[in-house]
Design a protein around this nucleic acid. Structure first.
Lengths: 249, 249
DNA sequence: CGAGTACTTGACCCAGATCAAGCCATGTGG
DNA sequence: CCACATGGCTTGATCTGGGTCAAGTACTCG
């Protein structure tokens, strides 16, 4: 290792990088600028992906994990009866493809919900780099652990009301756009993700609105009563109130 | 690095280690014997834990992850209404505590379902060692990825029948005891894990027996018609037909 | 052998699914 | 610029898988 060992502040670096193609959004925090350069050398941008374009498909050999730069993607799988199950939504700053490490091929497909771009992180090179850079290894482990908690949380038993309220709060947190949400996904996908019928999502949104918890018009949602929603979605809400991006963004 | 670089075969090593206290069960595969010694130096055994004894509790500071040596444990959390949700069962050779890496404290509790012992893997030392030993880093990443897939799978939408059939198949696979299962957990825990009522589990087991799919008497289950069960539990069944232990065991 | 706990079985009920119209935004071709 | 098609969304009516409640039954462990 040579050169600067100064640890880079994430927001400052993002500002400084406004001009560079690769790292404008995809940068790990807590790394030295040397390390970041090394990371930059293995990463490349893919996109823009049009709405409906696939990033990868079920069965593809596992090559890379991805960090969303902008837009939104969903991951889904098709079961034996041909029905789609939405497994997750991926917003700017979030990783996807981690579940393919173990089986070495993708167990689900990933498609853009809106025009999107991603950072491609070739896994073998990433793992090699993480071997040298302790902060990078730590970041990857923490992000995988986070996904693990979120997934376990979703797997637990809650009412439709709790799941939807929790989902909206989680979205608000993850987009960081305050109480003004622009849903990237159709009702059908929200329903599938939450294990509900489309109609139930629709009805619950109508009811939440009637109860003054939020205002909804198509994909526009304004959360009016966060505490009220928390009371409903309480245990379903995500763990970190304070904002915490992946570090790859 | 000095000394032997020979990669150790897991079964041979387990045989060879019958006598040593620490590594009898907890050994990572694909490592050199040097690396294994390094790992051994940071690991220690905890147990036996009596049935009902806690390994850790919700809120405990995150210190270590654990590999089950023998017995069985469950992880669970208590929701806002005081109800227990079983998050997972952990059999010999499996890891637990991975979900605590991100928040740095345990988000769930872990309790022994039967007399059990575990390997304690202090996380900071483990991470440090994984920094030096590529095979160890790779193993950890793969195991976390595996948990991610399993959890995502459980989170999807299936009937009670599908979930129970899948669960039984998954248990049979994980215990590696063929078609003869000895359930370590009470019905109530199976039900909670699968998001069902205890009565539903009981009724379904009765029905499966009636249909000739299995024989059940209390905690003894003998799977009679694996293909029939697979047909029911199909997409819910775990990914790896062929046996694949953690590598820590 | 008695008390407690786990399990089973039956009767009933309800949250949310399914079925069935209609509605509303966007795009498309005339 | 307007019909009108298309697909997403809403709303109502009805149905049902699995939950809940209520007894029993059978292990298990002092």
């Amino acid at each position: 290792m040579h050169g600067s060992r100064k640890v880079v502040n994430i927001t400052r670096l993002r500002q400084a990088c406004r001009t560079c193609t690769l790292m404008e959004l995809c940068l790990p925090m807590g790394l030295t600028s040397d390390d970041i350069q090394a990371l930059e050398s293995i990463v490349h941008v893919k996109g823009p992906l049009d709405r409906g374009a696939h990033l990868y498909r079920e069965g593809d050999a596992f090559q890379a994990i991805y960090a969303v730069r902008h837009g939104a993607l969903k991951t889904y799988s098709i079961d034996a009866d041909g029905r789609e199950h939405v497994l997750g939504f991926h917003l700017p700053g979030e990783l996807l493809g981690l579940d393919a490490i173990y089986p070495r091929y993708n167990r689900c497909s990933s498609v853009a919900l809106a025009s999107s771009s991603v950072c491609v992180l070739p896994f073998s090179q990433l793992a090699e780099l993480a071997q040298k850079v302790a902060g990078l290894q730590a970041t990857i482990l923490r992000l995988m652990s986070k996904d693990l908690s979120m997934s376990a949380n979703l797997a637990t038993d809650h009412t439709a009301e709790e799941r939807l309220a929790g989902f909206l709060l989680s979205l608000a947190q993850r987009t960081g756009a305050g109480t003004e949400l622009q849903l990237a996904m159709p009702r059908r996908d929200i329903a599938s993700y939450l294990r509900l019928a489309t109609e139930t999502v629709s009805r619950l949104l109508a009811r939440f609105q009637q109860e003054g918890l939020l205002e909804v018009h198509r994909k526009q949602v304004r959360l009016l009563d966060l505490d009220g929603l928390r009371e409903l979605g309480g245990s379903f809400e995500m763990m970190d109130r304070r904002r915490q991006r992946t570090g790859f963004v």
